[in-house]
Design a protein around this nucleic acid. Structure first.
Lengths: 227, 227
DNA sequence: TATATTTGTTAGACTAGTCTAACAAATTTT
DNA sequence: AAAATTTGTTAGACTAGTCTAACAAATATA
């Protein structure tokens, strides 16, 4: 598995975004790629030939392009690195979620398997980055546990916050006050039948939250989905 | 302060090492630089001209080279980044001290002032990396507090371990067992007049160590050197 | 000091990644 | 289906960083 250049990696990542993540398209055209990467179509054309030679993409003259199996694997590795670094910047270095992308664009190209696996461990194997996007694991698989809201969680289960529905400053401020954040584990201790208040534990601290609030917190629950 | 390329940064760092750190030489020759960086003298020659144009080095045809004030400033920034990353890898990601260099060679070129300042803060403003080399602070200054051994420290003072004298596996194992490591704060609680045992506190845990052991632990003490 | 050796420079070439400008193929519109 | 438009390709050029091979200057040695 010989290493790719910074630029080659960016093309793979771009193609991945265009063909695998956005929309349902399976292929991308030269102009589209050029536009996405901020270079000219002629430049893309040269690189497509090169990546084809390396068997990382499917490409035919005047045709659309798509990733090969190997190309996709490489692209996913880059996405994994990008999102782990974003998570690190946000959770450990207190970057705002909207400041992390630019720096992660650089960090994602650091070559060291050991580094990224240790970082993953250090961050406690997060399943989503600060934007809520899923982080592929070391095997390139996404943790696609079904998402639900905290109001639907069963008493006694341990779940993990993966996003919010409400985005108002008021709401987010309260979220923050409770010690909640993306990837934060939450335990549901009890539900009051009378008023549907939910007792939760976050980082060792107990809180009672309203159903209105719980409805806005998106979670995944591994306990619910054990086979 | 326009950004330098990866390669330009490496030349500055190399020249810094040759002229400021190793030996007492103030200037370095073309062959010497080429040798240090693992490229051919012809290549170095081109780069020296370029760095001269950018006013980062002093260079005259057939003469030796040295850093300008600005060049030195830039070089120190790179050294700072390198050593902070090494510290991060060792302390937070549990890399061995002999594995950190290679990865730090890549990480040192990431461009983000905010990143490096946050990292510095996250690591609690370390003054030395895992090899014991000093880390320049955000102003490019080295923390050159006088070094002494733990046996010389005054009771009641807070000091920081910066190195060891003994390098035997046996000794290092004991160091590790006490929770000691580079940059680890240590408080000296008491000294027994009878047998010279020293009572210290490391990370909230109290230990009593022998003078023989204390003699091998190199420390700096900010308290002793307050003006 | 004349010669040999070391050190440094120059010229010319190569690669990766980019560009512009001209051209070709494919697609859409009338 | 002819014309217009969009999309993709090619040729040629440029920059950064590297090389080799030939040459020049400086230094050491006999």
């Amino acid at each position: 598995m010989q290493a790719l250049s910074y630029t080659e990696e960016n093309y793979l990542k771009g193609l991945f975004k265009l063909t695998e993540e956005l929309g349902a398209k399976e292929e991308a055209g030269t102009n589209e790629i050029a536009n996405h990467l901020g270079v000219k179509p002629a430049t893309v054309n040269d690189m497509l030939k090169k990546l084809k030679d390396k068997k990382l993409i499917h490409y035919e003259r005047y045709g659309k392009s798509s990733l090969t199996k190997e190309g996709k694997k490489r692209a996913i590795e880059i996405v994994r690195k990008h999102r782990l670094w974003e998570t690190f910047l946000h959770e450990k270095l207190a970057f705002n979620w909207d400041e992390v992308h630019e720096v992660a664009e650089q960090l994602e190209h650091i070559q060291s398997k050991k580094l990224i696996d240790k970082l993953d461990q250090f961050l406690n194997y997060p399943s989503a980055d600060p934007h809520g996007d899923l982080i592929p694991n070391a095997n390139g698989e996404l943790n696609i546990l079904p998402r639900k809201t905290l109001i639907e969680e069963l008493v006694g289960h341990h779940c993990k916050m993966v996003g919010v529905k409400d985005n108002s400053a008021e709401f987010l401020k309260y979220v923050d006050k409770l010690g909640l954040s993306i990837n934060q584990p939450i335990k549901v201790k009890a539900k009051q039948a009378y008023d549907n208040q939910i007792d939760i534990e976050v980082n060792g601290k107990k809180h009672s939250i309203s159903p209105k609030f719980a409805e806005q917190i998106i979670i995944v629950c591994p306990t619910c989905n054990k086979k």
